[in-house]
Amino acid sequence: MPTFPAVRPSALLAILLACAGLPARAATVPDTLAQRLAACISCHAREEKRDAYFPRIAGKPAGYLYNQLLNFRAGRRNYPLMTYMVAHQSDAYLAEMADYFSRLAPSYPPLAGQSASATQAQLARGQTLVEQGDAERKIPACTACHGATLGGVQPAIPGLLGLPGDYINAQFGAWRNHTRHAAAPDCMAGIAERLSVTDVAAISQWLSRQPVPADVHPAARPARPLPLACGSMADSAQRP
């Protein structure tokens, strides 16, 4: 059986870079948080040719981002790549990641074509649910938690504007199918259970068609007590 000489790690890296068409000096990069999180930005912050299932995370409340990282690590959210990335990270480092992205200014390009058509009746139903809810089925308005401008609320409620309809629809589907969870009490799981499939489609279609104001940002605090108990708000208060 043939034997091969030992290769120093630095030499091996140079070989790999050469095969990739990169100069060896590209191996020397600054060890900054921005550099370490560049892989996240490649999926979550690109404005052109973005996959509809990768949401923007720039500018979202740090508490919300931290909670989602915890949820992936704990198995309450299921996406193998994210689970792998955070599996062995400490709470403190996840909090640092969340803080970094919360400070980035989000960028919203003009509304692009939608992946699905919507009738006026469907959009009207979506607007009603977002702005008024459905008292008979104990469904609060989206604005009651996510803010009057739907820009989110500190410390842990995300904005709902600038998200693709497919992504919003998929998240509701995950809650309805019990494949996405949050800290108990899981307020969104309860709401998703009360919404019909047609209502979910109406909400996702209406939200995804709304322009994003230039000055949209998370509110400093809820304007009034939240209509439902939400474990995520409590979790964010205990972050490192």
Rank of each mutant, 00 (worst) to 15 (best):
E193L: 05
E193Y: 03
E193S: 09
L195C: 01
L195D: 02
S196P: 03
S196N: 00
S196D: 07
S196T: 06
S196M: 00
V197L: 02
T198L: 09
T198S: 12
D199N: 04
V200E: 02
V200H: 06
V200G: 02
A201H: 05
A201Y: 04
A201P: 06
A202S: 10
I203E: 05
I203N: 06
S204E: 03
Q205I: 04
W206C: 00
S208R: 06
S208V: 10
S208D: 08
S208F: 08
R209D: 02
Q210F: 02
P211I: 00
V212I: 07
V212Y: 04
P213H: 04
P213S: 03
P213R: 01
P213W: 01
P213G: 05
A214G: 06
V216W: 10
V216A: 13
H217P: 08
H217C: 05
H217L: 09
H217T: 08
P218V: 09
A220T: 12
A220V: 12
R221D: 09
P222N: 15
P222K: 12
P222I: 14
A223F: 09
R224M: 14
R224Y: 11
R224H: 14
P225Q: 08
P225F: 13
P225K: 12
L226N: 13
L226P: 08
P227T: 03
L228W: 11
A229V: 03
A229F: 04
C230N: 13
C230L: 13
C230E: 14
C230G: 06
G231D: 12
G231I: 09
S232N: 13
M233C: 13
A234P: 03
D235A: 13
S236T: 06
S236Q: 02
S236P: 01
S236D: 04
S236G: 07
Q238A: 11
Q238T: 07
Q238L: 15
Q238C: 12
R239W: 14
R239Y: 14
R239F: 15
R239T: 13
P240I: 10
P240T: 10
P240K: 10
